[in-house]
Amino acid sequence: MTGLQNKATQPANTVPSGADAGQQIPQQEHVMELLIGYLLLAGVLASVTLLIIGLVWQKIITGHFALNYLISGMNLFQFVVSDFRTLLGDASFGPRIFVNLGIAALLLTPFIRVVASVFFFALAERNWKYTLFTLFVASVLTYSLFLR
């Protein structure tokens, strides 16, 4: 455990109901904090790496960093699928694919964090309230990102 001890256990001034209650819940929450923390970090690093590769590649082949194209009104699912189609053999494979995947990785980062939270609350904590709350957030994001 780091210096910043974790927390969100039971209300202050109350006593845990059993020996395990005081230990198990903080440990689970700390696992969740580490999981979420590293997920967010990995997502941002992946995004930044892909964007740098795309821009540097663009600079190498064209002599400048400028990329002039628009994502014409597609949801994230269509955006990612079109990227992977290009990645899996389309002739237009080039710097754009890395820039697109960098943006997609960034957008997927908080989404994956929310989905991971749903599973954590449902399976590890078995906390139905927060399973429902996170499921609601995941559902709204799924609709607005992938289905709309």
């Binding site: 780091t2 910043l4 969100a8 929450e29 904090e33 979420i36 923390g37 970090l41 908080p110 939270s117």
Partner: peptide, 15 residues
């Protein structure tokens, strides 16, 4: 996301 990754691991954020 970058800032939250550090804050969450530090255990100050209330999830």
């Amino acid at each position: 996301s970058g800032a939250a990754s550090a804050y969450v691991r530090d255990g100050v954020t209330n999830l």
